[in-house]
Write a protein that binds this DNA or RNA. Structure first.
Length: 283
DNA sequence: CGATGCCCCTGAGAGC
DNA sequence: TGCTCTCAGGGGCATC
């Protein structure tokens, strides 16, 4: 999926087109994505104002003046693409809906936002804003990695005694919210920690270092507009370009970029997913 | 309770 | 050209 940096990039791209704007109507072109859509979704997304656009973990949150919040999860291949009239006067031509264009939002200002998702692992729901934290997408999430609650004492406490690997611990959204396979690989490379190391056996100085590198990796990726592999696009259709900065992810067989390291990046499979790392400098 | 596989779905690319 | 196989950014659920 789009991980935290991709979702944040999409949020920033959508903000000028959606925040403070009225939705005139919303076309809901199928009954479900990963799960059934909420009851009366089209009606509840018509003639309402989007007050603000937020993000929690990998979930986009659009607070509506109806008292509902729209939750959007992009899954593995979801995109939100803007067409029509943009606030700055730009005009992206509108095309006929494609096979995987599942939901289309129309704003009073003349913009349309198309949710496209070939694999349909994405999801949308509507939930009372006042009770958002009870929604199953958001309940049980760990802290935001870019927030103050994510720090070395916290992470150290959560990793203590864990017998699973550090790779799977960082992918566990209950421990820290928003990381996925790419950014875990990259952050572990930057921190010089093997993805195979047991979570409870990462030394305290290494945990401190890891927290810093997770934050820096995500910040760098957001600054680059996210990573575009196959499906991901920013809301304006542009590619992200953080993939050109990958040191580990997808770099199997490439020389390790760490200064003074002569290792080769290798791919291993952990719980059915690829981990890329340099066995020479990640310990 | 925690760890591990399997599964949802479509499409791209490799190999034959 | 076309078939088959593997793989893909996520995460819920069954099972042990």
């Amino acid at each position: 999926m789009p991980e935290l940096p991709e979702v944040e990039t999409v949020r920033r791209g959508l903000e000028p087109v959606l925040a403070g704007q009225r939705l005139t109507h919303t076309d809901v072109r199928r009954p479900d994505l990963r799960w059934p859509f909420p009851k009366n979704m089209s009606e509840r997304l018509s003639d309402v104002c989007v007050m603000q656009l937020r993000r929690r973990s990998k979930v986009l949150l659009a607070d509506l003046d109806s008292g509902d919040t729209l939750l959007v999860h992009l899954g593995m291949s979801g995109r939100m693409l803007i067409e029509g009239t943009m606030p700055g006067g730009f005009h992206h031509p509108q095309s006929a809906p494609g096979k995987h264009d599942h939901v289309i939002f129309h704003t009073e200002a003349g913009a349309s936002i198309t949710f496209n998702d070939p694999r349909r692992f994405g999801a949308m729901d509507l939930w009372p804003t006042a009770e958002l934290e009870t929604h199953r997408f958001l309940a049980n999430l760990g802290p935001e990695p870019l927030g103050n609650d994510f720090n070395a004492p916290y992470l150290s406490g959560r990793l203590k005694g864990k017998g699973s690997t550090i790779k799977s611990a960082l992918l566990d959204q209950r421990i820290v919210a928003g990381l996925g396979n790419i950014y875990v690989c990259e952050a572990l490379w930057r921190a010089g920690i093997s993805p195979k190391r047991l979570a409870g056996k990462v030394s305290r100085p290494k945990v401190e270092n890891l927290v810093v590198h997770i934050r820096e990796t995500l910040a760098d990726a957001i600054a680059a507009g996210g990573s575009s592999l196959r499906d991901y696009r920013q809301a304006d259709g542009e590619l992200g370009y953080f993939q050109h900065s990958f040191a580990a992810y997808g770099q199997e067989g490439e020389p390790c970029q760490r200064e003074g390291c002569s290792g080769i990046v290798q791919r291993i499979v952990q719980s059915g997913r690829s981990s890329f790392h340099c066995a020479r400098c990640q310990k």
